[in-house]
Amino acid sequence: MYCDKVVELLKELERSREDTIPPYNNDGINQVLSEMKTLDAEIIDFLRKQKDNLPLDAIRLRRAAIERNKRCLMTYIWTRLQRLKEMRWEIGAILPSDVRQNLSQSEIEWFNNYCKTLVSYMKTIGSDTGLNLTQDTKPPKSLYTEVRSLVDAGKLELESGEVLILRKNSQYMLSRSQAEPLIRQGILEQVRQ
């Protein structure tokens, strides 16, 4: 049946968790594209052969199938972009290699451009160095927050100039602004009260 493959693609995407990106299914996309081409060729064939009584219904069906394929492919790409965009805000400009492997060339390009656009926007806020919008994502309840180190991360220079050595499984009180990026990178873990 027409359009089966593309729906398969979308289901695969929908089944995955919202905060992950499944591998870019290049084969699947190529198959859908070739199906579209075949359908188009069939339509042109109809038009060439039978000039008098055109099989209108057959043509309409194929056109609808092409449109649907197109729509689904666009949705596939669009949904992936949304997830990628979320990742820029969550993880930051440098993607972990396992995510990077799952992206297509064009998606990596898009991501790099998006980072560039975002950074150049953030630089213009305020007068000199700009403002990092990916920080301060939650309303602060207290100045300090209790965190546990998940790895031996080594030295961390505090805002006050003191140096702290992060050891695995030990707990610290850190200022929120400093802990936040480290929590997002997975070095620290917030200890919930």
């Binding site: 579209m36 197109k70 064009s106 998606e107 390009e109 898009w110 451009n113 656009t117």
Partner: peptide, 21 residues
């Protein structure tokens, strides 16, 4: 820039579709 970037990305797929579409 955002709009341009998204259009470019869509175009990488749209390019391979049959004309008219």
């Amino acid at each position: 820039e955002f709009a341009l970037n998204a259009d470019n990305h869509f175009d990488t797929i749209l390019r391979h579709m049959p004309q008219l579409y």
